[in-house]
Every structure is written in structure tokens, then in C-alpha cells.
Write a protein that binds this DNA or RNA. Structure first.
Ligand code: MN
Ligand code: MN
Ligand code: ZN
Ligand code: ZN
Lengths: 143, 143
DNA sequence: TATGATAATGGATTTCATTTTCATTTGCAA
DNA sequence: TTGCAAATGAAAATGAAATCCATTATCATA
């Protein structure tokens, strides 16, 4: 999805929620849409501050929360105590494997696992809305 | 595993680490071994304080960290910002499914999922040490 | 049993990520 | 334009967890 499309979707979301579009939100969102990592709020704020020194922590937090709610960003927590956000992947949902030595993050998709999850949940009477699957171990370089 | 066995294992672990056995550690560990939920440190501290008012939260934190390291307790984080601990399951590793309405937690085991995880990791050059799989959704009562 | 080295304790303090507060500014519908 | 609800940003508050430090406990050795 093109970043311009995302910005349009964001404006739509903001409108339906009765919120207001602001220069700060636009700039923070644009800055985020250009990233391609699992970026922390601290890192994103630093990027934002390069052009707009006066934008504060709270606005970045608030904007990213909004992007998360709207489905235009995915919040991730890899156990280091910091929330990270990533852009929507082009090819749908993925999960992560994290190196416990060098913190490298690899992504994977496995339709079979997803299916088994649903089946397992069904047996327990649950309906799955979302899930978190993280593998931790050593990457090729570190093992 | 019997709680007495666990206490013995803990003492062994403490010894090999060059640490010391104390009345507080023993009592905190015993109290924890008697639980059968995913207990938060706050809840555990409350239980501990019923008998020993002067035991502080720092000691509970430290003791549970020790139990986690020794493998006698499993630390869990279900996304509510609090670390929870659970006792070793009798029948080996399990994962969780959490109701996003009533917070009910169900446990499950699925050997096929575990196997697919290893295979997936292998393809990416990783060796899995541990993993986190949590399903979130609605339980039978809440859907 | 006393001693001394070392680890543990617990209350207080600090850290760190995140949230909230609040005075001020901004967006936007009428 | 103007009214006013929403947003902003600096600062303070929050809450979980870690750390500090004076005191206490453990334990091997004398
Ligand atoms: Mn990712
Ligand atoms: Mn469990
Ligand atoms: Zn690595
Ligand atoms: Zn429920």
C-alpha cells in the first residue's frame, strides 16, 4: 500500500472518530510510514525531531496509538520493555524469530501454524481474534 | 513434582550458585509452590505478607527471579504490563489462550505446532531456545 | 561458640517507559 | 470570523521493576 493511500486512510479514520487532522500527526505518520524496521517510539521521536524539534514525546505516543487502533501500524513487544511499531507488511500477517544474542529479528509466515492455532482454540471453545508467536533463539551468526 | 522436591532442587540451585538459603526465600518459594494460577508478584507478595508482614517486595522480586532462572517457575507476560509466574506443569510445556473480555486463561499443548516452529526456525538459520505463543480471543462464555 | 567474610534483606530511592495533566494553541464547522 | 472541541507540548505523575545501602543473617573456619 502506498504511503499516500495510508495518509488518506488515516484522515478518514480521524474524521470518522470526530478527531482533527494536524500538521504534527501528519508528519509523525509520514515519518513512520517511511520506516521499514520494528521502530521504537524513542527512535521514531528522534527521526521526527530532526525536522521538527518542538514535537514532543506525548504527541508521538498518541499518534502511534492512533495508527495502531486504525490498523495502519502494528504494535509489537519483543520483551525488552519497549513497544515497537512496524508498518503493514505487503504480504499479510507474519510472526517473528528473535536472536537472543544479537537481537536480530527475522520474519516468517506459516499458514499451517495459523490453522492449527484456530483449530486448537476451537476445541477449547475460543474464537481467536489475534495471536502472538515469537521464537527466541540463536541466529546463524550467533550459534 | 512434589513441593518438597522443588524446595530441595531450589536449595541445590542456590548452593551451586554460591548463594545462601534463607528463611524468607524458603517461605516465598513454598508459598509460590502452593499456588496454581498465573500469579502476579503483587498477589504473591500479599499472600506472603499474611504470615510474614515484614517481607518486602524486593525480596519477592528477587526470589521469583531466582526461581525463574532455576527453572522452578515460569515467567509469563500476557500483555497487561505485569509479570506473572506459574508453577511447572505436570505434563510439560504448554501455551495459552486468553479471553480478551473476561481474561480467562486456558492452556493447551500442540506438538505439531512446536514441531513446525522448529522447522520454520531452521529454515531461517535459527536454533529455537524458547518461544511464546499466545492466542487472544473470546471464550465460550464471552462470544 | 565466636569470628569474619560474604550474601541477603527490606525500605527507600531510582529508573524507565508510558500516561496524564493543564495551560495554550489549532482546526474546522457554522 | 468566531466558538469551541480537540490537540499540543512541557512537565509531572504513574507503575513495574531494578537498584542502593545500612543492617542482618548465614556459614565455614578457628
Ligand atoms: Mn515484523
Ligand atoms: Mn499456564
Ligand atoms: Zn544473532
Ligand atoms: Zn471470556
Amino acid at each position: 500500500m502506498a504511503n499516500q493511500t495510508k495518509i488518506a486512510l488515516l484522515k478518514g479514520y480521524i474524521e470518522t472518530k470526530g478527531l482533527k487532522s494536524t500538521a504534527q500527526r501528519d508528519f509523525i505518520a509520514e515519518t513512520f510510514f517511511k520506516t521499514n524496521t520494528h521502530i521504537s517510539l524513542e527512535e521514531l521521536l528522534a527521526k521526527v525531531k530532526r525536522k521538527h524539534k518542538n514535537i514532543g514525546y506525548a504527541t508521538v505516543y498518541r499518534t502511534m496509538k492512533l495508527l495502531g487502533e486504525s490498523g495502519l501500524a502494528i504494535a509489537r513487544q519483543f520483551g525488552d520493555g519497549q513497544t515497537r511499531y512496524e508498518n503493514l507488511p505487503e504480504d499479510g500477517h507474519h510472526d517473528h524469530i528473535i536472536c537472543i544474542k544479537c537481537s536480530k529479528i527475522a520474519e516468517f509466515q506459516n499458514q499451517k501454524i495459523e490453522q492449527l492455532q484456530s483449530e486448537t482454540a476451537k476445541k477449547l471453545g475460543f474464537t481467536v481474534v489475534n495471536h502472538k508467536l515469537e521464537l527466541y533463539g540463536y541466529c546463524a551468526d550467533c550459534s
